[in-house]
Nucleic acid binder design. Structure first.
Length: 210
DNA sequence: ACATTAAGTGATT
DNA sequence: AATCACTTAATGT
């Protein structure tokens, strides 16, 4: 499939034809493997990544080298954090890592101003992206501020199950602990409790949601 | 059989 | 809820 057709397929519903032409002309499509660091903190950003397939995560690394997930990006989504810096061509504040194998459209930052001026559908897209991120951000704020750890874990499992379309989630206690920034011991204890309550079933390296 | 890694648990702060 | 210290269970070699 050629570039233009691929873009059409993924983004056709939200972008105008002329915008697709422009993206096909100046952008490049690459396949990357799971775990690839597309952008690291401090990098100069030359291209904006737009996710065409797969899932990427945007994380912030603290001074201890711990990762904190800010949000995930699914196909058609782009990292708005990169938009905010593009006009001044500053350095990245975040890390952009692939959660799965993925295809990305890389579009040069230099040309982005022009997109904003020329294409209403691009402006709309950027706005929508911003709104989505903001929503997600508020949601996680709520979760952290008002919900107890056991509820957070349950929510985490439900989200994962939804994303993977299966009730059996392949995940270790340690991984959950990392994602929720807590310790493995705490996760194990709360999971045990949830199991006693009959909400889940625990097995090695996977958890079944009931 | 042995080593490695995941998970469970009591005690302490 | 975090940490330590230890046990037990599952899995790979």
């Amino acid at each position: 499939m050629n570039k233009r057709a691929k873009l059409e397929k993924v983004l056709g519903d939200i972008f105008s034809d002329k915008l697709l032409d422009n993206l096909a002309k100046h952008g490049r499509i690459y396949k990357f493997e799971e775990g690839t660091h597309i952008i690291s903190r401090g990098d100069e950003i030359e291209d904006i990544p737009i996710v065409l397939s797969g899932t990427a995560k945007v994380v912030r690394t603290d001074d201890k080298g711990e990762e904190h997930i800010l949000f995930y990006l699914n196909p058609t989504e782009a990292c708005t954090a990169t938009f905010s810096i593009c006009s001044e061509s500053k350095k990245s504040e975040i890390d952009f890592i692939l959660e799965t194998d993925a295809e990305l459209l890389l579009y040069p930052v230099k040309l982005m101003d022009q997109l904003t001026k020329e294409f209403p559908s691009w402006r709309y897209y950027v706005c929508r992206n911003y709104n989505n991120r903001m929503k997600e951000f508020l949601e996680t704020m709520d979760t952290i501020a008002f919900m107890k750890m056991d509820e957070r874990i349950l929510k985490y499992l439900q989200k994962a199950s939804e994303a993977l379309k299966t009730s059996v989630i392949p995940v270790t206690h340690q991984e959950i602990a990392n994602d929720l920034s807590t310790s493995r011991v705490v996760v194990s204890r709360l999971l045990k409790q949830l199991e006693r309550e009959g909400k889940i079933k625990l097995r090695r390296n996977r958890i079944e949601l009931l």
